[in-house]
Design a protein around this nucleic acid. Structure first.
Lengths: 97, 97
DNA sequence: TTAGTATTTGGTCACTTTGCCAAATAGCCC
DNA sequence: GGGCTATTTGGCAAAGTGACCAAATACTAA
């Protein structure tokens, strides 16, 4: 039953969020649109790696992109993922008992 | 900045949820407690694999366990993860435009 | 067309994940 | 203790992930 397309799809979205750098990117995009160079500077790793992280988030339907001159401007599609973060914080706090 | 403990922790929780079988388990536990054998029957893969999935969810703080005779009874700790599922459904629906 | 800037893609490598089987552990009952 | 049931752990193979560098692509500007 877990191999139904529903669970596979959901796992795909969660997997896209299951990386520190991608979570950071999502939070940054929640503040506003960013291009690849800006995100690269903030994160401090190779630009090609950032580009791949962005591609993963985009394919998962979490972010979108538009072209502006020779730049790619990324922005958050579903701010509801920020609510997920709140749940995670709840889990973390409930741990310390 | 993404290598702060906050992002690493959050990514850990998301990673624990980033597998179809583990999502299925979480939904089952939302219906009520289950032991390992029951979950194994429902999922239909090796019991040792189920045990490992449960261990991952437990270590992430998403589920907990108690002993009853020679069984291990697992239950959901933070039902708020179900809200995450709702967000994922939202993402999926917004895709079909 | 050529040079310059921004981004993506190909290739490689080390590491992690997930499945199975077999064996170990834990608790119950006789 | 010995047998039975339930669960976890060790070991291994196949597949997936994430980082880098180098090269390709795309667009601007001269």
């Amino acid at each position: 039953m877990p191999n139904s397309s529903r669970y596979i799809y959901m796992a795909g979205v969660m997997k896209a969020l299951a990386h520190p750098t991608r979570l950071f990117i999502v939070e940054q995009l929640n503040e506003g649109e960013r291009n690849v160079s800006d995100l690269t500077t903030m994160v401090g790793i190779d630009i090609s790696t950032i580009s791949r992280h962005l591609s993963i988030l985009r394919q998962a339907g979490i972010i979108t992109v538009r072209k502006y001159n020779n730049q790619m401007i990324y922005s958050l599609l579903c701010p509801c993922v920020l609510d997920m973060f709140r749940c995670v914080v709840q889990i973390r706090e409930s741990q310390n008992d």
